[in-house]
Amino acid sequence: MSGLIRIISYALQDIGRNAGLSAMTVFMLVLMLLSLNVVWTVNQLAGESIALVKKEVRLSVFLAPDIADRSIDELENYLRSFPEVISVSRLNRDQALAEFKARYAGRGEVLSALNELTENPFGPIFMVAARDPADYQRLISALALPEYDRFIEGTSFEAHAGALERLGVIIRRVTEGGIILLGLFSLIAFLIIFNTVRVAISTQRAEISIKRLVGAGSWFIRGPYLVAAVLFAVVSVALTITLVLITLRYVDPYLRGVFTNGFSLTNYYRSHILVIIGGQLLAVLVLTVLSSGLAMRRQLRV
């Protein structure tokens, strides 16, 4: 027991008296973890925004103003018969007009042109929600039947589809950028840690031979390095998570404007905190214990 306390206090002493090297090691680990978190977060945001956009995409089916109610019902039943269709909602002619007016509220010339007309030019509109954006294309071709040709004045989805595609491209670019960044940071971290360990090997080799000379057993020699590795891991993960949570506090208000469904990264981190901390701790522990273990294995051969 007192042996363990001594080992821990040697580790603390080593860290304190090699403050520069210790700080460098922690700094690199934090940098690596931060880039990992950035990629992770970007991925999370990407998934979340795609899901959000997908959910908001609707296929609008514009019907002829003179369509009979029976035909409307028939068409609706036809649409509902597709398993891809989640919901079909209907705007009647007045609602369609109101919607149009609302959308062009700022454009006087459009509205005055509309007011010239004595009759409401709009027909009813179907708003169709499907499971997946890819399903809309199939629905559109399913609607292009000669018997419906007379009722259906048009469908509008192409504009949304383009936006969705663009969003997909942007997200892919951002994720690619993030992965490149992570690769770069990991490479730098690896090189610096590798060099740190290499320098440590030569100084530690002399120290270990001295410790052996005065009769230290294996645990007094290995122990402090292992304890230091564990401490570096714990400190760097704690620092990273703190930094991330502080950053998120500033990022989240912006997200609230974008994600109307109330998605918040802070909440996401909070609810996955055990997995996030555990995963990163494990990753860094493997890295630090492995590197110091490798360094020791070389030196402990007498």
Binding site: S2, R6, K211, V214, G215, A216, F220
Partner: peptide, 11 residues
């Protein structure tokens, strides 16, 4: 002191 500590001597 190190030579004594590694031998488990008391403080």
């Amino acid at each position: 002191a190190f030579a004594l500590e590694v031998a488990g001597e008391r403080r």
